[in-house]
């Protein structure tokens, strides 16, 4: 895995990234198999999100953003397909993807920063999901670029604690995409 934090959108990212949507069997150790393969072969993962897929019991979907420089796509596909638990892989070019990511941030608040903070939250279209006397927790579900922008804006506030999920993606409607490759 990359030690660097993921820097999201195309303008800010110097890397050519690719989004792989990998349907895997929902069995113990499958994530380790996928992550281990990437580590072994020297493919860098920029972000990774996992959740149960459509048919919850049997399959999970792993959305992996890879650095296309370290990971020739044909090799990533070929090697991933050899994992017996990988059922289907589709690759979505960033330009053809609808991508979303969730950002959660808890920010210390006081009388001095409350107004500016509300401005930032409003401008980003983020929502306040939790508050106490001294903190506010905001949530944003947006493009990686949108999350980047909010992250930068919130960095100005000392003591902010911020988490991001890593992106998930589906092909943009109306754009012809690659057929999902069935496993072999």
């Amino acid at each position: 895995m990359s030690p660097e934090p993921f820097l999201g959108d195309v303008e800010h990212s110097p890397v050519r990234h690719h989004i792989l949507s990998v349907l895997v069997e929902n069995k113990a150790g499958v994530l380790a198999r996928v992550a281990g393969l990437f580590a072994r072969r020297g493919f860098n993962i920029y972000s990774l999100a996992v959740a149960p897929a459509e048919s919850h019991e049997r399959f999970s979907r792993i959305t992996i953003v890879v650095d296309a420089e370290t990971a020739p796509l044909e090799q990533v596909f070929g090697q991933l397909h050899k994992l017996v638990n990988v059922v289907e892989i589709s690759d979505i070019a960033p330009d053809d993807a609808v991508e979303r990511e969730v950002l959660l941030a808890t920010i210390p608040t006081d009388v001095d920063n409350r107004t500016s903070l509300l401005d930032v939250i409003g401008a980003a279209n983020a929502s306040i999901v939790d508050v106490d006397a001294h903190h506010v927790t905001v949530m944003l579900a947006a493009t990686p670029a949108g999350c980047d922008a909010l992250e930068r804006a919130l960095e100005a506030h000392p003591g902010v604690e911020l988490h991001r999920t890593g992106r998930v993606a589906v092909p943009r409607l109306g754009v012809p995409t690659h057929e999902p490759m069935r496993s072999r």
Binding site: V24, E25, R58, L83, V84, N85, V86, V87, E88, R182, S183, R184
Partner: peptide, 8 residues
Amino acid sequence: DLPGYRPL
């Protein structure tokens, strides 16, 4: 039960 394994 090998849904991901289809040797060429």
